[in-house]
Design a protein around this nucleic acid. Structure first.
Lengths: 102, 102
DNA sequence: TCCATTACTACATTTTCTGTAGCGTCGGTC
DNA sequence: GACCGACGCTACAGAAAATGTAGTAATGGA
């Protein structure tokens, strides 16, 4: 299920993960889903990317079991996706400090 | 100093940060520098990217004050870079769990 | 002077992303 | 049962980014 992709030639979990998260829009999509589910177009408008790439990133995130589509509410984080997001939340605070330093 | 780039149209710190980290090879480079400094070519070989892109990503990371070049030892994380890395370390453990789930 | 090491650049080719238009399905409403 | 809007998603040409390979320029030691 884990695809042989891009930078992750070793197959080590951390590399596969960094490879996935390092793709354009992936972090941003996870971030946009942090509070509530979003519809495809809503998500697309929020991040400002083309539908083509939004769709392919969503497909990758669904493959990775981080995002799922609920027919009633839209795209949302899975349990795994929420765990990952929790690891990322400290970035929010840290980014404020970082911006002041640069 | 913060460039107007790609997805970060708002200029909100978290968006600027997610935009930077979401570029190909950036997370990987930070990860490769987690333990000790690395020479340009060493880094390039480790991640398997072209020198062109390694160089431009390093330039971005240096602009962002996350990485610096020490003539004696090579590229290394700055204090800010180490702080950021610390936020990322939990990913390592989590990625093992994640891979088992997919 | 020669050679190795270093960071880095040039550039043609390949891959990826964008922007825009539109498709197909489904659930109403008249 | 024909129309409409919302929905997820696809097609495709043009633009942008990354690759792969070769090479430049600076530095330091023999």
């Amino acid at each position: 299920m884990v695809k042989r992709v891009r930078g992750s030639r070793t197959g080590r979990p951390i590399m596969v993960l960094l490879d996935l998260l390092g793709r354009r829009w992936v972090l941003r999509i996870v971030w946009e889903l942090r509070e509530e589910p979003r519809r495809f177009r809503e998500l697309q408008d929020a991040i400002g990317a083309s539908p083509t790439i939004v769709n392919s990133r969503l497909a990758e995130l669904r493959d990775a079991r981080l995002v799922e589509l609920d027919a009633d509410s839209g795209y949302r984080l899975t349990v795994l996706g929420k765990e990952l997001l929790r690891l990322f939340l400290p970035l929010h605070v840290w980014s404020e400090k970082w911006v002041k330093a640069i």
